[in-house]
Write a protein that binds this DNA or RNA. Structure first.
Lengths: 229, 229
DNA sequence: GAGTGGTCTAGACCACTAA
DNA sequence: TAGTGGTCTAGACCACTCG
């Protein structure tokens, strides 16, 4: 029900004004409260603007933005939304003991092995993102040989570990490119690189996995919309 | 009504479980739908987790985070939330003609003057953020001498220009420190610095002002919570 | 089975905007 | 003044979790 309103992004371009809430309720045969709940989701993402006493309007500026910083990030979607062809290069899938800080972040004993996944995401074969992920091996229901490393990390985790990610906590910083970034992201020594360090949790607040992503903003612009007030 | 539920952040620490929606509705003398709307806001920010058939729980991890990347950013709040004393250093308030790109971003003619505001935010007198803001002078109802430069930019704008900011679009990138950053942020040559380039809009999609902020993540960690699914 | 959150209804009244 | 979105009510039924 809710998702069907997304057709607004294709159909209501005339004048950018949507039908009134009552009209939409009648058209879809639901109550006005249901319409308002659906519109509320779109408003949260700033895809629409509602003005009391006036009407509901599409926000074309925000519609052009793919990354919603407060929700799911899918690197491959971000690349294809920018008009380029995404691909993934898997550099490493290894099973090993965690470092002290890795065990600490994941809240596991230091003898429990982890799976380390190192990948590079490319746009039109140009490297954009260098990404590492650390997952406790005990979460996997299949063997590591079967890992489908082309999946976004949250799909990969949900498929192979059969747990849902509820939220993540991210540290954002800037770093100077080190040797592996120079090699794999094809940047120059001394270049500045965006770094995201994300820890993912399930609904019970247990840490599930964590990742570090190094983002070359010279190749793919990182643009987000934010709501005020 | 809605905001009153924030007391949850102080009162419901016992066991982290909140009373049921029906109980809350009765306690506050409102309908359950109203309670759900209020809880829905907290859930969006991941401050609470709701589990069907179980209950509503506080998320202590997210409660420790000050910056909600999808909503208002107040540098001084972020600094004081980190346990340090915020202060502001105003480097410059000037009125001048816009550059070509500034006029283009703000969608104003190139002869219309702008107010340029350059500030440094400090934590315990240690510089953290170097920030520039460009506002068309025509928006100001008071003269520039009266500008209260200690205010966060959205309050400053709403107070002096009497318009509301609805949303902003931000480009996030990493840059190598240049001379003014080295001077004012007290960083070393070659250091990597987080850069945010924000354009602010009103509900009618008109650009109101824009800013560039350079964030020293070595002094103040930038940490955000993100929702998945 | 009892209690929880998830979804939805059909109506009401208000504040606001525009013609 | 007519129509819009903003807020709220009192109830209903369902899916789910837990003891």
């Amino acid at each position: 029900m809710i998702l069907r309103y997304r057709i607004a992004e294709g159909t209501y371009t005339y004048g950018k004004r949507l039908p009134s809430e009552s009209e939409l309720a009648q058209e879809f045969g639901v109550s006005r409260a249901t319409v308002r709940a659906a519109l509320g989701i779109l408003e949260n993402e700033r895809l629409i603007t509602r003005r009391q006493g006036d009407g509901t309007y599409l926000n074309e500026r925000v519609m052009e933005i793919s990354a919603q910083l407060h929700s799911t990030w899918d690197f491959q979607c971000m690349i294809s939304d920018s008009g380029r062809t995404p691909s993934v290069l898997t550099l490493q899938i290894t099973k090993r003991a965690p470092s002290a800080s890795e065990a600490n972040i994941l809240e596991i004993p230091s003898h429990e092995p982890i799976i380390a996944l190192v990948r590079v995401f490319l746009a039109d074969l140009q490297p954009v993102i260098y990404s590492t992920n650390i997952i406790p091996a005990s979460f996997f229901v299949y063997e590591k040989e079967n890992i489908d490393a082309t999946l976004p990390i949250h799909y990969l985790f949900e498929k192979h570990c059969q747990q849902k990610i509820s939220y993540s906590i991210s540290d954002i910083s800037a770093v100077v490119a080190d040797d592996s970034l120079i090699t794999y992201l094809n940047v120059k020594p001394g270049d500045a690189i965006l770094k995201f360090r994300d820890v993912f949790y399930n609904p019970s607040n247990q840490p599930l996995l964590f990742g570090e992503s190094f983002y070359n903003d010279k190749v793919l612009r990182l643009r987000v919309a934010r709501a005020w007030g």
